[in-house]
Design a binder for these strands. Sequence first.
DNA 1: GTGCGATGTATCGGTCCGATACATCGCGGC
DNA 2: GCCGCGATGTATCGGACCGATACATCGCAC
Lengths: 212, 212
Amino acid sequence: MLEFAILGLLQESPMHGYELRKELTAKLGAIRAAISYGSLYPTLRRLQAAGWITEAAEAPVTAEEVPALTTRRGRVVYKITADGKERFAQLIAQAGPETYDDTGFGVHFAFFARTDQATRLRILEGRRRKIEERREGLRDVLGRAAERLDAYTLELQRHGLDACEREVRWLEELIANERSGRAPTVPHMGTAGGRREDNSPPPPGETRNERP
Amino acid sequence: MLEFAILGLLQESPMHGYELRKELTAKLGAIRAAISYGSLYPTLRRLQAAGWITEAAEAPVTAEEVPALTTRRGRVVYKITADGKERFAQLIAQAGPETYDDTGFGVHFAFFARTDQATRLRILEGRRRKIEERREGLRDVLGRAAERLDAYTLELQRHGLDACEREVRWLEELIANERSGRAPTVPHMGTAGGRREDNSPPPPGETRNERP
DNA sequence: GTGCGATGTATCGGTCCGATACATCGCGGC
DNA sequence: GCCGCGATGTATCGGACCGATACATCGCAC
């Protein structure tokens, strides 16, 4: 998962570890807490060893002011390689079961702008199926095993069931949108305050403004 | 987390691994997928080594029919010890930051029937605080960094924000209920079909019917 | 000039997952 | 009668990721 996310982000622009973590946190904030350095740095090393990314030594400020007084290790900027882009494409294409669990789906969804429509559809439907299964499981427990469980556990299940039903509806809308051409923008099902003006969806596909 | 859940479940009745997993799945189905044997069995061994649980060898059928033709290892039933109960109480009392993350909170909540009211309140409020922080983070991104992100990422954030707002409301109701005496039963905020008849909440505290 | 919060890289132990292996039991079908 | 097969049951191994920790630098306010 981390591998996927890093490869995806580095396609937008080269970055060093710290920056990568911040961008990751911003992009994936909805689905998981900040990612740990304890996984980030080892993963970067692994990707580098595999040849998916390379270390692009940061040109120190204006290239002549270099203090060199200190060890001057400084930030290590990583950029994606051609092999890395290929790898990313391959990771998008192949969908294992982990593609549909909470984290896996979230990460894939976050990079939908780099995913072709057919794959987007496949992932959305796979996720829906998975959530529907979870929903049925919860309904079963709430129905059949209700008397075996205490009131708090039951309340937890109800809340979970509600979340499942809500997500299924969300996915339905996304799938419908996807089928009929245009990009996301579910019509604000929440109570969440004011949706800001424009937000016109870009055409599906490559969308993000690459920084030069 | 697993340690906590196992100790909690074994207080209700002795069980063997497989059964433990099923009960765990039923009780925690709302917050996480089935727990893996790859963590369950090692954890059982760890708990046993620590003296929190003991192996209560299953009396094989009628105690004389024992075939012994095969290795006859069979199921290993575990029961909690006095130390184990003490440990569980201690785990409830001390709340680290992990008590408020998705999994940690869910597991604690699932055992609220064994938790005193003051602690329940503390955990609910801690969770609310945490979710409010996540919510603010998402609002920030949606506000400040909106133009830097593609339409899909934004949609993901919106969905996440919606979930946060929903959970905060849920927690508010639980907290209000908790303060004014009686147990859970949030008034069915969902579209979720028919709530079955009674469901009268038991008084807070020990509630679950112990199997003899 | 000095302290302090943000920036930045890095490692270590521990928890948990997913895949895999293997044995037993009960039951329906042939 | 016996064969297969799905549910029950215990177990290990490699790998992913986390949380704590350590340490160095930079910019800036006091």
